[in-house]
Amino acid sequence: MRRWPEALLHALADRVGEHALSRPNARYGGTGHYLAGLTSTLLPVQVRDAIASTLEPISCAAGTNPLGQIGMREATFLTGQEERKLAAARRAGHLRTRICLRWNRLLPTLDRQEVEWLADFLEHRLSAAKLSDKLHLPQYAVEQLVHAELLSVVDHPYVSAHYDTPQFHASEFARFAKRILDTGAPLASLIDPVPLHRVARSIGGGLKPWGRIFSELLEGRVLYSSAGASIDRIMISRADAAAMRRLEADRQHRLCRGATLSQRDAAEVLNLPLRHVKHLPGGPTSGGAHAIPWRRVRHLARSRVTLAELSALTGLHSTPLEARLEREGHFRRDVFGWPRRSVLQTVATWGTSTRDEIRRRKIGEDHAEGHHPRTRRTP
């Protein structure tokens, strides 16, 4: 009453939203059905005139809708969603309820602009898994990028209610990819460049700090060069790579007890080749994918170090690297590698000259056997 008569439409929409079924065979009442006395002949003339004037914008002929509204059937055609699904979302408040007045009957409709937005989103929707594929990142990294405010998740009530994982519009990926390309520097400006994906492989012991890594890059604290949005196309200087290995994931991104990782994410955390994920414990989910318990992955990450991680960390080829470790009394236990603490302590004592000597020895063995491998710019 304090906002009379404009609030009348809001009050009617709330009542219709609570009770209307949005079914083809539903019987809809008039305005008086939802707000008692609204059509009473006892109302003063000026009140009836105010009500009629307020209802005018939502009044329409059969087969039409008021400006800015859309019927359920057309909304179903635009979005590809089932009518009962849209109706349930409207009743739950996940979609805005609009109303129209036809032959003194109030019918529920939807907001046209909202439905058109939803149709566009559904056509260009990217799940967190799909976005991580495009960036060649693990899925948990996407959540870190969202927390670092580098990516914006779609938080519309309809989307939040119907999807269990973060959802994105394709334009958000395009914006993020453009920022990566625009912020990068020429490759010639880097000193002894190394690929970012190899730097990441040298980080172990738990979740990799992807949110902090990309914040360092995109906010200009670490110079990088990029030929694309994927981490496979990003290079940084070797000195910056050493500093990046000391970054840690923010505390809020350390997964909670009972959580699971996909096989791909578990392999990325452990720096384990995908062909070895079959050795990880876990079972298939309802979608058919295998889920690995986080507590098991965390235990392995903290206690073991793989050959791939050691190779990326030292810059040494796997064969001479493993031979050197065996000469120093460290033998690989299984596909998960060596005891982490003792091996990393040993590797830390290896100086640059020792690593260069191993490289020279490996090249000499290849030439002696008649092999002439290409010299790579970066290990």
Rank of each mutant, 00 (worst) to 15 (best):
R333T: 13
H19E: 12
D14A: 15
S230P: 04
W338F: 14
T109G: 13
E326N: 09
M244R: 00
Y34P: 02
V269Y: 03
I51W: 05
R295D: 15
E82D: 14
T314K: 08
A312E: 05
R15Q: 15
E116R: 06
Y140I: 05
I231L: 11
R298M: 10
Q263T: 15
Y34V: 04
R254S: 11
Q144I: 04
S353L: 15
R355V: 07
K208F: 04
G32A: 12
D232N: 11
H299M: 12
H33E: 13
A52M: 07
L270P: 00
I191M: 13
V222T: 13
G205C: 08
T346R: 08
A92W: 04
R233F: 06
A242R: 13
A170K: 01
V159S: 00
A241Y: 03
R246V: 11
A177V: 00
A312G: 07
P195D: 10
L55C: 08
T306R: 03
E357G: 09
W4D: 08
L218T: 02
S132W: 01
T306S: 15
H124T: 00
M72P: 03
D232H: 12
G63S: 10
A242M: 09
E309M: 10
T260A: 11
R84L: 15
S59G: 10
H19D: 07
R264W: 07
S189A: 12
S225V: 03
E74H: 07
A89E: 05
I358E: 10
T76Q: 14
K178Y: 04
V115L: 14
Y140N: 03
L43Y: 01
P44N: 02
P186V: 05
D164T: 09
G68W: 06
T79G: 06
P166C: 05
G315P: 04
G315D: 09
P209G: 06
L131I: 01
G282Q: 04
D120L: 02
L313T: 00
E219Q: 15
I213Y: 05
G204A: 11
R238Q: 11
A7T: 07
H317M: 10
D232G: 12
S342M: 07
G211K: 02
R238P: 01
V269S: 04
A259E: 14
W210D: 00
A129W: 01
R3A: 14
M1S: 15
R324T: 06
M1H: 12
R275W: 08
T64C: 13
I363K: 09
G63I: 07
K130H: 12
I231A: 04
A119C: 10
A227T: 15
V335F: 06
S202F: 00
V16Q: 03
V159M: 03
V115C: 03
E248W: 05
P157K: 03
R27Q: 15
H169T: 03
